[in-house]
Amino acid sequence: MRRDETETALLETRGLTVRFGGHVAVDGVSCRFREGELTAIVGPNGAGKTTYFNLVSGQIRASAGRVLLEGRDVTRLSASARTRRGMGRAFQLTNLFPGLSVLENVRLAMQAREGRGFRMFSRAMGDWELLDEAERLLQQVRLLSLAEMPVTALSHGDQRKLEVALLMALEPRVFMFDEPTAGMSADEAPHVLDLVAGLKGQPGRTVLLVEHKMDVIRELADRIIVLHNGVLLADGPPDEVMDSEIVQEVYMGQALTDV
């Protein structure tokens, strides 16, 4: 038996498929994500990476196939319910609470995690436990000096950092990053990637990372899966996958059509 099947997967998709009209955007993707592992999901533009993420985190409904979280079927659960069960997602296009402050954004995520949203008679700003935690997290992502600023006043790079912070604030078991450093300046990106790397190897956690930069993937990923036209094309250790003929072909083809 391969190692895959003996160990329990934290997250698993079985034959996950979604059709938009006649177009099959994700086509029967079966994949297991183990504890402590950082899996990079790569593929050319339009390969279905983000759509796959949307299926896993519940933003869109699968046409066929299943999503299992710790062996339990969550395919029919809403995105919100999946989050409450320990899945967390950061978005490719920044998706924050624009009119609220940076601190409030993070605090809201922590408040959701703790299930304290229905408290009506205490002061939200009196919950020091969460506020302290939020400040610590903002310090980690180097946003503490901007804590009181509204999100709309932040630079694009800082908004991307906050996007990552919101996911960290949820303390999920499944971390899903969708190009976390896209649009970030060259001196900010490594710091955010360090945070992502820090999640590797932790018990009870698994990290999924959609990323384009090959050097980043080579350095961070324990494993790579390649999607192409919605189909799982390759799955294995980074060096092996990246040097494989089929992946070279896909990326070369992409490069040629781009020209």
Partner: peptide, 22 residues
């Protein structure tokens, strides 16, 4: 100013993300 009120504002600002964070 309660946690409940803060969630209402979060929903007003971005319903999709409020749902996504649980």
């Amino acid at each position: 100013v309660s946690p409940f009120g803060s969630v209402l504002m979060a929903i007003r600002e971005n319903e999709f993300r409020a749902e996504a964070i649980g």
